[in-house]
Design a protein around this nucleic acid. Sequence first.
DNA 1: TTGTGTTTTATTGCCTCC
DNA 2: GGAGGCAATAAAACACAA
Length: 331
Amino acid sequence: MESGRLIFNAPGSGAGQMLFLDCGAGGGPGGGLFHRGGRPMLGLEEGRGVKRPFFTSPDELLEEEYYDEQLPEKKRRLTPEQVLLLERSFEEENKLEPERKTELARKLGLQPRQVAVWFQNRRARWKTKQLERDFDRLKASFDALRADHDALLQDNNRLRSQVVSLTEKLQEKEDATEGGATADTAAPAVDVEASLADDVEEPAEPAATFEVLQEVKSEDRLSTGSGGSAVVDADALLYGRFAAAVDSSVESYFPGGEDHYHDCGTMGPVNHGAGGGIQSDDDGAGSDEGCSYYADEAAAAAAAAFFAGHATHHHADEDEDAGQISWWMWN
DNA sequence: TTGTGTTTTATTGCCTCC
DNA sequence: GGAGGCAATAAAACACAA
């Protein structure tokens, strides 16, 4: 981009001091020493091969030697001392009040506009760094969540295979019962429990399972003694053990109480709307953590259907949570 | 030395606030 | 409407490998 320049003596400046007005076509950026409003920016050119700051102290500006070798201005970097002072000032406050700007400019021998520009660019750099930090932090958080998710999936698969094998065993026992003598109708339930005890590894929360067992036994005593009770009871036992295992997983995922995954809004763990995306700190990132990554209402419905008609009468209070539990189970 | 990528300084245009 | 902030961008300065 070619720029034409008007070079003229700066009003009020010492003799020979020039200003360069950038008249680049289209008003494009680059090299101009005038900013909006026609505010002039002073610039002094270095001698060939001589390194020296573009903007110097007011005293230096008056030194005659600087008026030699006037050439078209070039962009100069601030000296380390100038940058240091600016950095310190930025650390104190990243916004620049007019008084501070003037004072800094005076101390540094810069134009106030330069100080303002430096702060503007510095804020932009800080924001970029902040975004990088936010990204790293969110990525780490996401990776951790994904690892947990994978672990839960493995757990889920293991439990599902147990359900299948135990269901098969139950079916075998049912078949055997129907084909054999009908001596003691309570016997199948006892056998199922024994079988389950052999085949299912210890649940993560024995207390919860114990409650289920107590419930199962209690209902078993009240049952009519039909062969069907064994099926219901076995399902109830499975449900209880599964729920305990899931609760354990959830607890480990949300230390401090299961309410963490109940408190994610009216839709349970499913996070809806724009708030589910990556957010900056300003947007309150982190408040949604653990709430929104694995939404699958179809899975919840499937889980509810699985247990419907089998164990629900044992766990009426858990029915309303079935969707959320299955959300962990089938994802 | 030269080509290339990065950093720094500065400008422009748009937006918001008073 | 003016002042100031921000995003986008240009271009000089700088760093560094080939």
